[in-house]
């Protein structure tokens, strides 16, 4: 029997029920036999976007590798909330070494698997944006340029949340953090600073780069699955709202992730060998106010027309640059 073409927004939530899809298009997360790599009982805050992102990504990678996976974790929330000695939430082999060396640990594990003739065992390195775009950047770039067989996943919550919400190079302009307070004539984080690591990753011409968001599970899982079908250095950056750091309600986490994408603030795309190969189109464009409003870190921006239009400009530029609107 022919299947009806199902669009993921049919249910109005982008989380179309598995029952509407044929077997191979169903999410890993929606199946009974998912690996639960990051198991229950961990100490993440209510509404933690990173916990969702990690769970989605690692379960998908486990399915893609027939459960032959090793994860290397940077210091940060994900490490702290999952492994308070003597407990662990990880049901997969997992190692934490330091804040700035997760990518290098991944390189080492992959090298060991190669010499042991266990190249069926795949390696993921993961960290937050601080551990990735700042302190871990040297090791990350080294892993990229050597094209080591590691998938690096950055859970991007736009700041150092584990140490009490300080600015990282992934913190957006205007955002309040403990080190960019909303005081003075230009409150919050500066607008002319920061770096775009997915594009920098692409400049290394590694085989695969993608951005993803926890609001769209199918898209995220498809990107992880694709990454695991490729050998060499790969990078996925997942947008993971942080209720604690952003001053948002825990129940808003998934919604904020969606608004970031639908406003153009967080462009979703894939790049292969240095070229952009796909972008996720905005279905129903929203003004950036919709995204900013539920977050206390932007409260001052909403009262500041110059800052507000600067944020809107960023979103508009993303839309132009990545072609995020259907022609």
């Amino acid at each position: 029997m022919a299947h009806q073409q199902v669009k993921f927004y049919q249910t109005g939530t982008l989380t179309v029920g598995n029952r509407l899809l044929d077997a191979e298009n169903r999410t890993v997360q929606g199946t009974m036999d998912r690996s639960n790599s990051l198991d229950s009982g961990h100490r993440a805050c209510q509404g933690c976007g990173e916990a969702l992102g990690a769970r989605y990504a690692i379960d998908t990678a486990m399915r893609a590798t027939d459960n032959k996976l090793i994860a290397c974790n940077a210091t940060g929330c994900l490490e702290v909330f999952t492994t308070p000695y003597p407990e662990t939430s990880w049901t997969i082999p997992w190692i934490h070494s330091l804040f700035g060396n997760a990518a290098a640990i991944g390189t080492g594990v992959a090298a060991a698997m190669k010499v042991k003739g266990r190249e069926d065992v795949r390696v993921i390195a993961q960290g937050g944006d601080g551990g990735t775009t700042d302190i871990g950047f040297g090791c990350l770039s080294g892993m990229f340029e050597r094209n080591d067989d590691v998938l690096y996943i950055c859970y991007d919550n736009q700041g150092y949340m584990n140490t009490g919400v300080q600015r990282s190079s992934a913190t957006p302009g205007g955002a309040r953090t403990a080190t960019t307070m909303p005081v003075g004539p230009e409150p919050g984080a500066d607008f002319d600073k920061g770096k775009n690591v997915p594009l920098i990753a692409m400049a290394h011409e590694i085989p695969y780069v993608a951005t993803a968001s926890i609001d769209r599970l199918h898209d995220l899982e498809a990107k992880v699955k694709k990454a695991m079908s490729i050998r060499g250095a790969r990078y996925i950056q997942i947008f993971v709202p942080c209720p604690l750091g952003w001053g948002s309600a825990p129940a808003q986490t998934v919604n904020l992730a969606r608004l970031a994408v639908e406003s153009g603030i967080y462009p979703l795309f894939e790049g292969e060998n240095g070229e952009i190969t796909s972008t996720t189109k905005i279905r129903r464009k929203v003004p950036v106010e919709d995204y900013l409003k539920p977050q206390r870190r932007f409260a001052h921006v909403l009262k500041n027309p110059a800052q507000l239009s600067a944020v809107q400009e960023i979103a508009d530029r993303n839309i132009r640059k990545f072609g995020l609107l259907e022609e």
């Binding site: 290098a104 640990i105 390189t107 080492g108 060991a112 698997m113 042991k116």
Partner: peptide, 28 residues
Amino acid sequence: ENCEYINVESEFAALSVGIGSSAAGART
């Protein structure tokens, strides 16, 4: 024979890669 020789980007990476490979059971 059977050895991975890795040109790393710093001493911090040199020992970090070594930590990864040793933890995964390779003589490093």
